[in-house]
């Protein structure tokens, strides 16, 4: 069997694997965005103790490998609760990416000139109001490119859930290699699937970025 025959014959078997990879990545990103936003606010807060909590979280999560986090959630946590493969993997991805996303949000919030906040305050806005109406809309737009980057990393990192037996793209490739003995072909094929997914993701992120910058044009005078 050659490369193209293997490629075509494995398409039906890859259908579920693609859906599973998309699902676990989306789950991870949604959780990651929530966690990221939360810890970004802690980091820019004026309260020292909140800064420290955020720093601790980011240090803990960035300092340990994703595969360790996945195994803790899947094999470790089962003594108390069985999350199953999708949830264990998705939450681990979310926790992991949340730390990086927190830094992205923090960076983009702090990149907005302090003068804007001061101006807003002098016009009578409360600090929450100026954050919500002035700083966040601009910060969000600035966060999109690095966020898109992080989404791509998350998509590729989701391949690690194969090791807890989640039936994602990489898992499928390992099985095809095992049963056909065609290592080179199996992994090039799965590489192509990842490239296609990354292409789609890049397209979506670009669209979001364009939509946001269009509606911001009147406001932002950089």
């Amino acid at each position: 069997m050659g490369f193209w025959e293997l490629f075509i014959e494995t398409i039906p078997g890859y259908k579920d694997a693609i859906i599973n990879t998309i699902n676990i990545t989306l789950l991870g990103l949604l959780i990651g965005l929530g966690i990221g936003l939360f810890f970004a606010f802690l980091k820019v807060s004026k309260l020292k103790v909140l800064n420290i909590i955020a720093d601790m979280y980011i240090y803990l999560v960035r300092g340990t490998p994703l595969i360790v986090q996945i195994f803790i959630l899947y094999f470790g946590l089962v003594q108390f609760v069985d999350l199953g493969r999708l949830l264990s993997g998705g939450i681990a991805l979310g926790i992991h990416n949340g730390a990086y996303i927190a830094e992205i949000f923090r960076g983009s919030i702090q990149s907005i000139d302090r003068g804007q906040t001061e101006a807003a305050r002098s016009l009578g806005m409360t600090s929450t109001m100026s954050m919500r109406r002035i700083v966040l809309p601009q910060a969000l737009r600035r966060a999109i490119p690095p966020l898109g980057n992080q989404f791509i990393i998350a998509l590729k990192d989701s391949s690690l859930v194969a090791f807890i037996g989640f039936q994602d793209l990489f898992n499928r490739a390992q099985r095809i290699q095992s049963s056909t003995g065609m290592a080179m072909e199996s992994y090039i094929i799965v590489g192509i699937y990842y490239l296609i997914l990354v292409l789609i993701l890049t397209f979506i992120v670009n669209r979001i970025e364009r939509a946001l910058s269009k509606s911001e044009r009147g406001v932002d005078h950089e």
Partner: peptide, 21 residues
């Protein structure tokens, strides 16, 4: 524009949940 972004995010969540089911 924040609304639009949220719509996209919520849409993605929805598709994800549907396929998960």
């Amino acid at each position: 524009m924040k609304k639009k972004f949220m719509m996209i995010v919520i849409g993605m969540l929805f598709v994800g949940l549907l396929t998960a089911c």
